[in-house]
Amino acid sequence: MRFKNLHVEDLDNNPNTVLVFKSLRSNGKYRFFYLLLMHDYLVLASKGCFPAVNGQPEKWLGGTDIEIPKSGLSWFINAIEQKFMKTEAEG
């Protein structure tokens, strides 16, 4: 990892954020994903609310998930389109 782990409390107001999207989890809560441009890298970070356990309150967990050099962005986009955006019939 080239960068220090981004902390969940720093994600919402990070000036390097270019995109935020969310995914509904099975517990009815959302997980948030952040794409940030930092230096010559695209950084994917996320956060989600961890449920209350053993009397402890729920809390936000997450941070940096992956760092991709800008030079690898075309590969990254192609991989998503070719591997994750196809229907089951398309393979």
Score class of each variant (00 low, 15 high):
T17L: 06
V18Y: 10
D10L: 01
W60P: 15
K4F: 03
V20H: 09
K83T: 14
L19M: 08
G55E: 10
V20M: 15
I80T: 00
V8P: 13
H39R: 13
E81Y: 12
E90H: 08
L24Y: 12
G63H: 03
Q56H: 13
S74H: 15
Y34A: 03
Q56N: 11
F32K: 13
M1Q: 02
L11D: 06
L6P: 00
N27C: 02
F84Q: 09
L37Y: 03
G62W: 11
V43E: 09
Y30H: 13
P69H: 05
L73S: 02
D40V: 08
Q82L: 14
K59W: 04
A45M: 03
N14L: 09
T64F: 14
V43N: 06
K86W: 15
I77C: 01
V20Y: 01
K59I: 06
L35Q: 05
E81F: 12
V18Q: 11
G63I: 08
D40F: 05
Q56C: 04
N78T: 13
F33I: 07
G63T: 00
I68A: 02
N14Y: 10
N14P: 01
L35A: 08
K4A: 03
L44S: 03
D65P: 00
G91A: 10
K29M: 02
I80G: 02
N27W: 03
M1L: 01
N27P: 07
N54C: 02
N14K: 11
L73F: 01
L19F: 11
E58R: 08
D40Y: 07
L19K: 07
T87W: 14
L35S: 09
N54D: 13
R25H: 02
V53D: 06
A52S: 12
P51T: 03
V53H: 10
A79R: 12
G72A: 14
L61E: 04
G63V: 03
S23D: 06
S74F: 12
F33G: 04
V53Q: 10
P15N: 01
A45K: 06
K22F: 06
N5M: 00
Y34M: 09
S71Q: 14
L37Q: 04
G63R: 09
F84I: 06
